[in-house]
Write a protein that binds this DNA or RNA. Structure first.
Length: 293
DNA sequence: ACCCAGGCGGGCG
DNA sequence: CGCCCGCATGGG
């Protein structure tokens, strides 16, 4: 089938750039080319190549790659293309700070990632920085991922290793790949998610139950469980509170006073309701970018 | 040199 | 219960 039709998806209020740069699981191992506005990432047994043309208000996603046609639905799910951003913005645009964040990163989507990939990435994320999370994640993929070949039989990438694949690694292996004290968590999570907890069977829509189940994993506490619920299961009720969110919210909404996690959670629920996961992503990205210098 | 990073588990009061 | 501490590693 030469000159195969390139699948296209019309998209509006969508920014591949802001989405990629907002430190979500996919972005730790995908490659992004800002000039061509293209993202390349391994998925299943092939590589998906996604180009965004037009502008963020109204554009087109072009899907290229060996399995481009069957990947169309997957791209739509993964980038949450059916989210009604007008409606979501209306719900979370509650004040001047949110308005500025939405304006600055308009089109940024939450992404929906594989639950196991998300679990591993956020176990690595604890007490760590984004650059090293990315490094460690890539090291683990390089060491334990399976080769992905193009139609000519050339190895082009490595797929994300499943939990069973990581069971072959020792704690020392993960330490050598840069995981540090998290190595023991990676090892035990690989075992637990292979033998005891089927991540594919957890109830994505039941926030409390989902969160409690995820916290059975050693090394997964409340914050990491919220990240997995949000970005691995698409549960928008999850509101992960990390150091950036905590600081930003204390400053913006609590006159600089130190607040407990429960109080901040309660505030977020009351203010942004079932869309608080989206509010979190805009607050987080804004705080992180404006915190750099 | 010093401080910080998408926190967590464990121990203590 | 809540509080507090140690924790690997590398970048600013």
């Amino acid at each position: 089938m030469e000159h195969a039709h390139i699948p296209e998806i019309p998209v509006s209020i969508f920014s591949l750039k802001h989405t990629f740069e907002s430190a979500q699981p996919l972005t730790f191992y995908a490659d992004y080319n800002e000039v061509s506005n293209t993202i390349v990432y391994p998925y299943d047994s092939s590589v998906i190549n996604l180009m965004h043309s037009g502008d963020d208000e109204k554009g087109t996603l072009h899907i290229m790659g060996r399995h481009a046609a069957p990947a169309t639905g997957e791209v739509s799910r993964r980038f949450r293309l059916s989210d009604d951003m007008q409606k979501i913005y209306k719900k979370i645009n509650t004040d001047q700070s949110m308005a500025k964040a939405i304006s600055a990163y308009r089109g940024m989507r939450l992404t929906l990632n594989d639950p196991w990939e998300t679990t591993l990435v956020f176990i690595i994320s604890q007490f760590n920085n984004v650059k090293r999370i990315r490094l460690i994640t890539r090291n683990i993929i390089q060491r334990f991922g399976k080769e992905i070949y193009d139609s000519g039989g050339k190895a082009v990438a490595k797929g994300f290793p499943q939990s069973a694949d990581l069971m072959k690694g020792t704690e020392k292996d993960f330490r050598d790949l840069g995981a540090g004290f998290r190595a023991k968590y990676i090892k035990s999570a690989a075992e637990y998610c292979t033998n005891n907890l089927n991540l594919g069977k957890l109830p994505a829509g039941k926030y409390e139950k989902l969160r409690d189940s995820l916290m059975e994993i050693d090394g997964v506490g409340g914050k990491v469980a919220d990240c997995i619920a949000l970005m691995g299961y698409g549960n928008l009720e999850a509101f992960p509170i990390d150091v950036h969110i905590k600081r930003a919210m204390e400053r913006i909404y609590f006159k600089g006073r130190k607040m407990g996690m429960a109080q901040i959670q309660e505030f977020a629920e009351g203010r942004w309701g079932v869309y608080r996961g989206y509010a979190q992503q805009y607050l987080f990205h804004n705080a992180r970018v404006s915190g750099r210098k």
